[in-house]
Amino acid sequence: MSDTDRSPSAAAHEYQLAPDESPSRGVWSVVAVLEDCPPPELPSLAETIDPEALDAAFIGTTATDHVSFEYAGYTITVTSDAVRARALECDAG
């Protein structure tokens, strides 16, 4: 992973998942880095999406291509090997 751009207005931040890292862990890890706070201080991911269902979507032969949702002020896009976070303010202009 490259150095993190701490600016919340960064266009998009991409986080490569480690080989055995679950996508849900990737989501809270990348947002924690962008928000510069420990992961448990973010809103619980479970309020937005069922983390286990998210992880399950990328397992097996019928795995999903990508999943997008909004979480903690970011548009999150998850693929099988990466998590992309884009701050919502940017989308709003």
Binding site: R25, A32, P40, S44, A46
Partner: peptide, 15 residues
């Protein structure tokens, strides 16, 4: 511990 704490907060405790 930090890793477990994050997983508890985001996944397990809500369940």
């Amino acid at each position: 511990v930090e890793d477990c704490c994050a997983a508890l907060h985001h996944v397990h405790l809500p369940k």
